[in-house]
């Protein structure tokens, strides 16, 4: 009843030691970002067919069972179908298309179906790529990769190290807060609160009873952690820098994967332009 910890499947890393899981997180991030950005601008059927071939190869390399991915996609598909119907019915391009059926602002046209279908396919590929990244990379690797990728920005005055420290601290507090919410819910139930009853206003005030103590405890922890971090020489003043124990090394496969991704990207762009 009050076992929140069972919902916390935070980070979905599958450690199966596949070549994708072993890749340097920097290379993996670059590839993923390149592909995600590129895919969000593709819009022809032939180019998506190419994508499908590429993703099949990617999937084989990840050695993750297709069933596992599909299960994580389950809630997604329902949304997708509803969104597809909406998109088709509300399709309204600048120039009126050839309507199959039309009523007020609702309409059904082949152009609309095609356009919506392309949007949906694009979204599925985006989802797949983002999921693949989280399935093959642990949170620590992700943060590390991110930090070292964007560290040149630090020289431009963008506080990258601060951003990474924010992430580290956030990850530290999540299990602590989950525990606290769990205890709060127990304490409130023990003192006679019914969680699933009441009108809108009562529901909001019950949520506030969990939310506000969470913030209070958070604010109080800030002071304490500040002392602890400064006592261990963490600084944020000008000229201060820290080094890292963890080291990342590019391997031959990482360079190959990068090169392959770039080739695929060029190929996709070309095909997209040719078939547009």
């Amino acid at each position: 009843m009050f076992e929140l910890s069972r919902y916390v499947t935070f980070g979905q890393y599958v450690n199966n030691d596949s070549i994708l899981a072993r890749m340097d997180p920097r290379a993996k991030l670059v590839c993923a970002i390149l592909l995600i950005v590129l895919v969000s601008f593709l819009n022809t059927f032939p180019v998506f067919f190419l994508c499908l071939i590429f993703c099949t190869i990617l999937h084989l390399a990840s050695r993750i069972s297709i069933g596992y991915i599909l299960r994580s996609l389950k809630p997604f598909f329902l949304f997708l179908i509803i969104a597809f119907i909406f998109e088709v019915l509300f399709y309204a391009p600048a120039r009126a298309p050839h309507w199959i059926w039309h009523w007020w602002f609702l309409g059904l046209s082949w152009a609309g179906i095609t356009a919506s279908l392309l949007t949906m396919i694009r979204v599925i590929f985006l989802y797949y790529l983002a999921t693949m990244l989280t399935f093959t990379t642990s949170l620590v690797d992700l943060t590390d990769g991110l930090e070292s990728l964007v560290s040149p920005l630090q020289k431009l005055g963008i506080p990258v190290n601060a951003l990474v420290m924010v992430l580290v601290i956030a990850l530290k507090f999540v299990p602590i807060f989950v525990n606290e919410v769990e205890r709060l819910m127990k304490a409130q139930a023990a003192r006679g609160l019914h969680f699933d009853q009441g009108n809108l206003l009562q529901r909001i005030s019950k949520m506030a009873l969990l939310l506000i103590p969470l913030f209070v405890s958070g604010f109080q922890k800030v002071k304490v952690l500040n002392v602890a971090m400064e006592a261990r020489c963490y600084g944020s003043h000008r000229g201060w820098h820290r080094t890292k124990l963890r080291a990342l090394h590019y391997k031959r496969f990482d360079l190959f994967a990068l090169a392959l991704t770039i080739v695929v990207c060029i190929l996709l762009i070309t095909v997209n332009i040719l078939t547009a």
Binding site: A162, L167, I169, L171, F173, V174, L214, F219, V222, N226
Partner: peptide, 17 residues
């Protein structure tokens, strides 16, 4: 400041929660 970084971390944790 260090304190502000920690505030951001704590609030990010609450966002996750």
């Amino acid at each position: 400041t260090t304190e502000r970084i920690i505030i951001a971390g704590v609030l990010a944790a609450i966002t996750i929660i």
